[in-house]
Measured scan of single mutants.
Amino acid sequence: VIAMPSVRKYAREKGVDIRLVQGTGKNGRVLKEDIDAFLAGGA
């Protein structure tokens, strides 16, 4: 999974398994917005 360390930390704090999140950034990078969208109700 491609993600910046700050995004990985954010996901950990929110209790999200970053491997389950679909990245929308360049080359499938997971963004902070992707974590929020995942929490809001889905992949």
Rank of each mutant, 00 (worst) to 15 (best):
V1Q: 09
V1N: 08
V1D: 07
V1P: 11
I2T: 11
I2C: 11
I2D: 11
A3R: 05
A3T: 07
A3S: 07
A3H: 06
M4Y: 15
P5S: 11
P5Q: 11
P5W: 04
P5G: 10
P5K: 12
P5N: 12
P5L: 08
P5R: 11
S6E: 14
S6W: 10
S6Q: 09
S6A: 12
S6N: 12
V7D: 04
V7T: 07
V7C: 06
V7E: 06
V7I: 09
V7G: 03
V7W: 02
R8I: 15
R8F: 12
R8D: 08
K9G: 06
K9N: 09
K9I: 09
Y10L: 05
Y10N: 04
A11K: 01
A11Q: 01
A11V: 01
A11S: 05
A11I: 01
A11F: 01
A11W: 03
A11T: 01
R12C: 09
R12A: 15
R12E: 15
R12F: 15
E13P: 00
E13V: 10
E13G: 07
E13N: 11
E13I: 12
E13F: 09
K14H: 14
K14G: 03
K14N: 11
G15A: 06
G15W: 05
G15V: 03
G15M: 08
V16P: 00
V16S: 01
V16D: 00
V16I: 10
D17E: 07
D17P: 06
D17F: 04
D17H: 05
D17I: 05
D17L: 05
D17N: 09
D17K: 04
D17S: 05
R19Y: 09
R19F: 08
R19M: 11
R19S: 11
R19D: 08
R19N: 13
L20A: 11
L20R: 11
L20I: 09
L20Q: 13
L20F: 10
V21M: 05
V21A: 03
V21P: 02
V21W: 02
Q22D: 08
Q22M: 12
Q22Y: 09
Q22P: 12
Q22G: 08
Q22T: 14
G23L: 02
G23Q: 03
G23A: 07
G23Y: 02
T24S: 13
T24M: 05
T24H: 06
T24G: 05
T24E: 03
G25S: 03
G25R: 02
G25P: 01
K26P: 15
K26G: 09
K26W: 09
K26V: 13
K26F: 12
K26D: 11
K26A: 12
N27D: 14
N27K: 11
N27S: 09
N27I: 05
N27H: 13
G28T: 04
G28K: 07
G28Y: 04
G28V: 02
G28E: 05
R29M: 15
R29Y: 08
R29I: 09
R29Q: 15
R29K: 09
R29P: 02
V30K: 03
V30R: 03
V30M: 03
V30W: 02
V30T: 04
V30H: 02
L31D: 05
L31A: 04
L31Q: 08
L31H: 07
L31G: 05
L31P: 00
K32D: 04
K32N: 05
K32S: 06
K32L: 11
E33Q: 13
E33S: 14
E33K: 14
D34W: 01
D34F: 00
D34N: 06
D34R: 00
D34S: 01
D34K: 00
I35S: 00
I35M: 01
I35T: 00
I35Q: 00
I35Y: 00
D36M: 05
D36W: 04
D36P: 01
D36N: 06
D36T: 05
A37F: 10
A37M: 13
F38P: 01
F38G: 02
F38H: 08
F38N: 03
F38A: 06
F38R: 04
L39T: 06
L39D: 05
L39S: 05
L39A: 07
A40I: 12
A40V: 11
A40Y: 11
A40F: 10
A40T: 12
G41Q: 14
G41V: 13
G41T: 14
G41C: 12
G42E: 14
G42R: 14
G42F: 13
G42M: 15
G42I: 15
G42W: 11
G42Q: 15
A43K: 14
